[in-house]
Design a protein around this nucleic acid. Structure first.
Lengths: 250, 250
DNA sequence: ATAGTGCACTGGTCCGACCAGTAGGCTGCA
DNA sequence: TGCAGCCTACTGGTCGGACCAGTGCACTAT
């Protein structure tokens, strides 16, 4: 045992150093959304690197959604407010490359939505209840209009519940996973011959969920919401995956 | 009303086109992990752009975790297997920039872990049960050794449960959120004066959860796991946030 | 057959240049 | 004096060429 422990030398690229510095500034709040970075030509002076290196760093920061640059903008790149678009992209990539099945995605939605309902039943405000009422009313009104409108109202309801849970992680994951699911089954529901009946049943289910939330019965709302979602997506999930989904229905 | 609907012209940067093409190739499976991209000098020929443009595209792809390039590698950039590192980065960024509180994170862990237990109770194999046994044995052995070892065994237990849930999304989110939580409270548990007692209690709780999983009682396992996690993290969560966490404990 | 060496090529960085686009100041008109 | 419209200085996007340190492979000498 002996000798000094030598760490492997990690060669750090110049552009990575720049990325780290800017990220650090944003994380620490030194750079706030809306603020501007110096121009690329200024930055090459400040960091003592060439413009190519500065630009590669900016590309990375832009890919992470932290800054945005427009050609011709005399004020330099703008620091962006945080958005889950990157989260969304990586999850979408995960879904496609790593082969996430529709079953897994729907199952995860059931988990998220039921948890949101469980929390919402205890934490919801009257305003949020009103939002949910409005959303269900919009669903009813949309039955005769079209599936797109119905779907939008449905989304609004689940978003209202997610907000009422007061957990940002639940809200964001709900949003991300839902858009992936909707992308996978795009058009299939709209094309279903009995879609009007499906919509009506879904409305009834949502009303039951909302009643439980209003009554403050979290476990009931959670159970009902899982059932609602299962019924809604069941026929699009391969039969082999359905047992795993049903495991969530007590 | 009338006239043709003109779409706003979106100017697409050259490097973005390249990113899109490569992403498409990876998503469609044309490019598989381990395969190599042509060298930058080849790519500039194939895409008819300059090397700077090729490099900016590669920077973006690398930032997304899709490819990796090493200096001097005669085979060009390597297509990477999908890993949730990018998911992790964006979530970490979200936690820091958007001000995710420890309470929200722990709450989300409770949601994930309890769902994983609920599913694991029905879907676990005997091998997975054995893994959980092993992990708890390691926790017991680690009490006298140190907190780091204990924590590692604890992580192993929860990972085994997550795997048994057979839902990749749950596994990945568990991993990501847990590492953020552990980062936030790093050292605090290890420094607690009564940490040995805490560890012993935690082991007891884990044993109860495992017993429920073994018995196939999903709802019980889920409820116990929420309680376990709440007890474990309670004192690090600001008192103002605790009611929201307790809302998950029936 | 193998150990060692050189080379062709890689990615990382720098430089200088040109272009289209933007914003804000300036000019000129009313 | 007020405003409309032009001008210009600057921006980011792209190009092409150059140099360097590192890598793997083929070739060489043993």
């Amino acid at each position: 045992m002996g000798g000094p422990r030598f760490e492997p030398v990690r060669t750090v690229r110049a552009y990575e150093r720049i990325v780290e510095q800017v990220e650090e500034a944003i994380e620490s709040g030194t750079l706030r959304p809306g603020q501007r970075l110096p121009s690329e030509r200024d930055l090459m002076g400040q960091f003592s690197v060439s413009r190519s290196t500065v630009r590669e760093a900016l590309r990375v920061l832009q890919a992470r959604g932290l800054v945005r640059s427009r050609p011709g903008d005399p004020h330099g790149a703008e620091v962006q407010p945080f958005t889950p678009v990157e989260l969304h992209k990586s999850m979408t990539m995960l879904a496609r490359v790593d082969g996430l099945s529709l079953g897994e995605l729907v199952q995860f939605r059931m988990v998220l939505d039921s948890s949101a309902n469980l929390l919402a039943a205890r934490l919801r405000t009257d305003e949020q209840l009103a939002e949910m009422d409005t959303a269900i009313a919009a669903m009813r009104a949309a039955v005769e209009v079209g599936y797109d409108e119905f779907s939008a109202a449905d989304v609004a309801f689940h978003d209202a519940v997610a907000r009422a849970s007061r957990n940002k992680l639940i809200q964001i994951c709900t949003e991300v996973v839902r858009s992936i699911v909707l992308g996978l089954i795009a058009g299939k529901i709209a094309a279903a011959p009995d879609r009007v009946a499906l919509m009506r049943r879904s409305i009834r289910h949502h009303e039951e969920v909302l009643a439980a939330v209003r009554a403050g019965d979290g476990p009931l709302a959670a159970r009902l919401s899982r059932r609602t979602m299962y019924d809604y997506y069941e026929e699009y999930v391969p039969t082999s995956e359905r047992p795993a989904l049903r495991a969530l229905l007590e």
